[in-house]
Design a protein around this nucleic acid. Structure first.
Length: 622
DNA sequence: CAGACGACTATTTTT
DNA sequence: TAGTCGTCTG
């Protein structure tokens, strides 16, 4: 156990204030690199040091990555005693709902539908209602249903509010969609949150139970909460009033999926006695980088003024580089990288290349390939989202929840010729197989059970069609098998449940290879929370950053979010920052020419080195 | 029912 | 340009 003083002496005065203000509501505005996670973890440790039982502490995050990081750091600070409740909003709510499922009309083995499942269900509902999918995009309808849920509108509420033709149509889909979910004993991601609220509102004693338990509630990345999540945190903290929220409005970049940074403003209204602490000392970047970041973000009107400072010194100029084409952009990045590795003895993993859209990675990759520099693309399709993985998992889902019609449909959709190796007609085959699997799932260890399912569904022949992609698919299936190994020692049913829960809620993200000697390439969104000595931001052009959608819509908020995105990118840099723009670029097979990003316009000139495109650049005709 | 072909579309992404 | 989706064809 670490000494109380150690936990506090390691902090600057503001951080220490945030850690020590343990009673009452606290809002911490934490700029990039200001020790947000440190403050949160030290606060938890401090509470325990003060004698608070860890089970009375609830810490909520948005991503599993953040939850894992906090878990790890808290466990380093506290070598004894129980663990706090610590996890994503979804995992904590799912945990609560598993033990209270009957109050919301489900059984504890409810299935969690991810976004793809949810879309499949919307499509199936639309087919049932004979709604033309060409005319009305299922994805759009799904998104509308999702936002309705996030405004706590149930199908009846939505129907009442629906006036125009389209809304009425959506209302029909929503009603049947929700009914199907209930019938199938399934919850979508939004339900996990909204059903928790429903549970609390309809069962005051259950709410009271959790309110009593959670004497201290902490919320990480508060700017990313949506209305429902904020309400959950608020409800849970109501009894003791010890609600601690930490975040940064300037780094809110997920409003497109429901995050509402205004929660930070509502917080002060809901908790008028809240202590507000701003962390402005930055431990990551040079002052030049912070000044440029400030020049960008201060153009936003929706923000609270704060000014980051550092003891790291001014550092180097920020490089603004003009290039002719996206090919030159990639080549410039690689040549700078090569030069810095040679001159400054940096490693390839000290660099990161950032871009607004995934499509931009292509040209940059090609430069890396041409010059023989290793790289890794972060992002893309997640493991549990892959078709072959979902296909295989659907067989497992049926074992736990035979009402899961989506899983049943998915499993049945596997070409009969693979299944028929063993048994009779298709529908019988699926039935017979699932019956058999259900039995086996109770007795076989999880990895053995998976092997069994793979063998009896002809899964290898199914995914492995002799192509390279087929081998890749097979690798993913083997990957699932290795995931299952960590549940090997558990009871078969518990293990199965855990695996499916992980598949639904713990979407494994690519890990950044800090230790490997290669350069990471990723979107501006993916880089949030990370830091690198040298940062390249490619494509600083009107239409790309800010993205044309935000530009075209002329929506004020959208442009401000793009600016925050740019700010997030800039503040990842520890020592050196490059902002690049191309005079022309091929987008969707057409050559476009866009002016430099408006975000480059107000940068303090004395901090910038501008390098124009080389005039003799030969534009290749092709 | 598997594969081919043309039409269509095209931020960002976590749970 | 490139990936997805629905329809058509053998």
């Amino acid at each position: 156990m670490i000494d109380v003083m150690d936990i506090l002496t390691d902090l600057n005065p503001k951080q220490r204030e945030a850690v020590e203000a343990i009673s009452g509501p606290v809002l911490v505005v934490a700029g990039p690199g200001s020790g947000k996670t440190k403050t949160l973890t030290h606060r938890i440790a401090h509470l325990v040091q003060k004698g608070v039982d860890p089970t009375n502490i609830l810490a909520l995050t948005f991503t599993n990555k953040a939850a894992d990081e906090i878990k790890l750091r808290v466990s380093r600070l506290l070598t004894h005693s129980g663990r706090p409740w610590l996890g994503t909003f979804h995992s904590v709510c799912a945990r609560i709902l598993r033990s209270t499922a009957r109050y919301i009309g489900h059984t504890p083995d409810f299935t969690i539908y991810d976004e793809d499942d949810s879309l499949d269900l919307v499509k199936s509902v639309m087919r049932k209602l004979s709604i033309e999918q060409k005319q009305w995009s299922p994805a759009k309808i799904r998104a509308i249903i999702s936002s309705a849920k996030n405004e706590l509108q149930n199908p009846e509420d939505y129907e009442i509010a629906a006036t125009d033709h389209f809304s009425k149509l959506v209302s029909k889909v929503y009603a049947l969609y929700q009914k199907q979910l209930t019938d199938q004993n399934a919850l979508d991601f939004d339900d996990i949150l909204t059903k928790t609220i429903q549970l609390f509102e309809q069962n005051p004693r259950i709410l009271e139970h959790y309110q009593t338990q959670f004497k201290y509630v902490l919320v990480d990345e508060f700017q990313d909460t949506n209305a429902v999540q904020y309400k959950i945190a608020n409800l849970l903290a109501q009894k003791h009033g010890n609600l601690y929220c930490i975040g940064d409005l300037d780094q809110s970049i997920y409003s497109f999926r429901g995050a509402d940074y205004r929660n930070i403003l509502y917080f002060e209204k809901d908790w008028p006695t809240a202590k507000v602490i701003t962390l402005e000392q930055n431990y990551r970047s040079t002052q030049n980088i912070l000044d440029v970041a400030h020049a960008i973000i201060s153009q936003n009107s929706n923000r609270k003024e704060k000014r980051l400072w550092t003891e790291n010194g001014k550092g180097e100029d920020i490089v603004v580089k003009e290039v002719e084409t996206e090919r030159d952009e990639g080549d410039f990045i690689v040549s700078e990288l090569e030069r810095l590795v040679r001159e400054k003895h940096l490693r390839l993993c000290d660099f990161v290349v950032l871009y607004r859209t995934n499509a931009q990675s292509r040209a940059i990759e090609e430069s890396f390939l041409r010059n023989g520099f290793p790289y890794k693309i972060i992002g893309g399709i997640r493991f549990f989202q892959r078709k072959e993985v979902k296909d295989l998992l659907s067989w497992l889902k049926i074992c736990l929840n035979p009402n899961d019609a989506l899983a049943l449909e998915r499993a049945s959709a596997m070409p009969a010729r693979f299944l028929q190796q063993k048994l009779g007609s298709k529908i019988e085959t699926v039935m017979l197989l699932t019956n058999d699997f259900s039995q086996k799932s109770k007795t076989l260890k999880l990895p053995e059970f998976l092997e069994y399912v793979i063998e009896h569904t002809g899964f290898e022949q199914y995914v492995r069609d002799g192509t390279e992609k087929g081998d890749e698919r097979w690798d993913n299936v083997r990957g699932l098998l290795s995931v299952s190994l960590k549940y090997e020692s558990e009871e078969p049913e518990v293990a199965l449940r855990s695996l499916l829960q992980e598949a639904a809620l713990a979407q494994e993200t690519d890990t950044i290879a800090y230790e490997k000697d290669l350069t990471n390439l990723m979107t501006l969104h993916s880089v949030k929370g990370l830091e690198f000595p040298v940062v390249f931001i490619a494509g600083c052009e009107q239409g790309l950053l800010p993205h044309s959608r935000a530009l075209f819509g002329a929506n004020f908020d959208d442009i401000e979010e793009e600016r925050r995105l740019c700010y997030v990118g800039v503040t990842r840099a520890k020592q050196k920052l490059y902002l690049l723009f191309a005079r022309q670029r091929t987008i969707f097979g057409k050559i476009q020419s866009n002016p430099p990003s408006q975000f480059l316009q107000n940068l303090p000139e004395h901090l910038i080195t501008f390098i124009p495109a080389e005039e003799e650049t030969i534009i290749e005709l092709d």
